[in-house]
Amino acid sequence: MGKIEWAMWANEQALAAGLILLTGGIVGVAGQFRDWEFAAYGIAAGVFVCLLEYPRGKRNKGTSVERTGQYCLTVCVKVFGPVTSNYFVRAGMHAAICIPAAFILSTVLGCVCLAIASIIYLTAAIHGEHWMPILPRKEPPKQSAGGIEEPPQNPPPRPPAEVRRKRLEDLEGAAYVNPIPVTANEV
C-alpha cells in the first residue's frame, strides 16, 4: 500500500469543510439568524477554502487524478508559492479561519470540520509533505530531433514478409536492389 499521504485526505476533508461552511453561511444569512454577520463571514470563508482546496496536489508516488477543470485554479494557487504550498502554513490558516465560524450555530459544523482538516494538514506537514501542482506533463523531446543522417538501408517499398524470409537463408540473395539511387541529405 505504501506510505500514507495525509495531505490527500486533508484536502478532501478541507474541501468538504469549505462546502459545509458555505452551506451553513447561506442558511444563516437567508434565515436572518441572530448575529448573521458571522454567517456572512462563513460564506466568504467557505468560498475561499473551496477555491484554495479545489486544485488537488500532486501525489509523491503514482498517478495523480485532477478534479474536473482544476487547471485554472492550480495556476492561481501556485502563484502564492510557499504560502499555499507549505502545509504548516495551510494548517495554521485553516485553524485561524475556523475560529470566527464557531460563534454562530449554523457554521459550527463547518468550523469543526475545518479544524479537523487543519489537524490532518498538520500531520501531513510533520510527515514532510508539501503541496505540488499537477501540471500537464511536458512531451519528452523526440530522440530523433537531430534529423536522419544516414539514408535507410532497406527503404520501402519492401517485399512481403514471406518473400523476405525465403531469401534469408542466403544473405547475398536476400539483398534487395533499390530501383532509385539513394544519397545522404546534404545540407
Binding site: 500500500m1 505504501g2 499521504e5 490527500m8 478532501e12 476533508q13 468538504a16 487524478v65 479537523i116
Partner: peptide, 15 residues
C-alpha cells in the same frame, strides 16, 4: 463527514 471524505476514490484506492 469523516467517513465520507476518507472514502473518496483517491483515498480508498491509494491509502
Amino acid at each position: 463527514i469523516l467517513i465520507i471524505t476518507s472514502s473518496m476514490e483517491v483515498i480508498r484506492r491509494s491509502y
